[in-house]
Structure formats: structure tokens, C-alpha cells
Simulated scan of single mutants.
Amino acid sequence: MAEEVKLFGMWASPFSRRVELALKLKGIPYEYIEEDLSNKSSLLLQYNPVHKKVPLLVHKGKPVAESLVILEYIDETWKNNPLLPEDPYDRAMARFWAKFIDEKLLPTSARIGQSTGKEQEQVIEEVHHHLKTLENLLKGKEFFAGHSIGYMDIAANIFFWFYVNEEISETKVLTAQKYPTIYEWIKKLKNIDAVKECLVEKEKFHRFIISLREASKSK
């Protein structure tokens, strides 16, 4: 029942959208609660006192935090439409590459806008190295998970935000010329109904990113 599952999220967060996508792929009814991260609700702070951030899943009154942890919880709780592979080694590899995205690609990508000159060139080169690794991992497959969308594909939804952000950025890193396999994968994902429902509205996201940049310049 929807009242058993609540998701505290933020519309522009790819981490929130990861969880939404997993819930939709599983067909799990849920109540979505949009959070204003500049004025977090008392419920969010109560349920997630450690990190105080979204996404946060609450199932039967019990909170689960951190997007990758939530994905595994969802997969273990609702057995239909499994997200992780059955084979233990394949499961371990899916977890490994999801952590690679969160711990390698994302932090390095964030440094692009925080650096200039020679330092920025080195950061971009490092990002290309990470992207090439994922491009090679995906080659010869329809999805990271194989023939259908799975845990790793959900974790990699960050590419949508990367892609839309670059449309208004002076620095172009994730291009179709350099990463044709990733671009083909994005096209396939966009044809999945659950994915379509979780995509952000492009112009709204552009305005959000521009406002963040302007706010950071004024500090």
C-alpha cells in the first residue's frame, strides 16, 4: 500500500530519481514527499539524523538512507523484477561499478566547475578516463545489466543529469563522438516508460543549474 512506502526526495536530485525509478520498475505504490533542501522538514531530520539529506525511503515507519543502499533494500524486499543479478559474482560487480560512479566519476566531475586553467585540464582528463572505462564496460551490451535495465543502469542515471547540464556548460565532456556507446544506451533508456516518468524537465533543470552557479559566484 502507498501509505507503507514514503520517499523523501528533491526533483533535481539524480539520487532521488534513482530510487523513484526502482520503485516504478518494481511497480511499488509510494507517496512522494518533495523536500526544500534549504529548509528541510522536521520529518526528514527525524528520520535521517545522520546525513540529513535525500533520498530517504520510509517503509512501514522504518527509514532507509543513501540511494544505493535503498536500491538494495527495495530489491531484497520486493522480489519481482529483480534489479541485481542472481549470480553472486555478477551482483558484486554491479555493486562495484555503482560505487565507481559515486566515488570516482561524480566527485571528479564536480571538480570541473571548481577549477580553472591547467588544473581544470587535468580534472577533465581524469573524467574522460572514468567515462572511457564505463564506455568499454558497456560495449557489446544493451544495458549495463545485460539485456534489460538493472541496478547498475539505475545507478548510472547520473548520465542524464551530466548530459543536460553540459548543454548549458562551456565545457563539453560527455559527447556522442567520444562516447557513442553511452549515447546509444541513453537512447534505449529514454524509451522505457518508467524512465520517461523520472526524467527532469530540461528547461526547468537548466534554470536550476544557472541559479546555483549564480549563487555560488555571489558568495
Rank of each mutant, 00 (worst) to 15 (best):
S13A: 08
L106C: 13
L23H: 02
A65R: 09
D193L: 12
K26I: 12
G150Y: 06
I124L: 06
L174D: 01
V58Q: 08
E121H: 00
G150T: 06
F160Y: 11
T181N: 13
R17E: 03
K26C: 08
A215H: 14
L84A: 01
M152T: 14
K24F: 04
A155R: 00
K217L: 14
Y30P: 02
M152E: 11
K53M: 12
Q120W: 05
G117S: 07
A176K: 15
I74H: 04
K132G: 08
M1P: 13
F96L: 12
A110Q: 14
L106A: 11
E121C: 00
F143Q: 00
Y151A: 01
P82K: 01
E142S: 14
E214F: 06
K139G: 00
Y73S: 10
C198D: 01
L138K: 00
V123E: 06
E119Q: 13
T175H: 09
K217C: 03
G146W: 12
A98F: 09
Q122R: 13
V173W: 01
R95F: 14
V195Q: 02
T108N: 10
A145W: 05
H59E: 09
F96R: 12
D90C: 10
K60P: 05
V64T: 12
A215C: 07
N157P: 00
M152L: 15
T77G: 05
L138T: 00
Y183C: 01
D90H: 07
N39D: 15
E86T: 14
L7I: 10
T77M: 08
P14W: 01
I28R: 06
Y32A: 05
E203W: 06
A65V: 15
E86S: 14
N39F: 06
A176E: 15
W11K: 07
A92H: 12
G9C: 06
K204T: 05
W185V: 01
K187T: 11
F100C: 02
K62E: 10
M152H: 01
S169M: 05
L131S: 01
P29H: 15
N48Q: 09
E3M: 15
R91A: 07
E35K: 11
N81A: 12
D102G: 09
E20A: 11
E4N: 13
L71Q: 01
A12M: 11
M1R: 12
K178W: 08
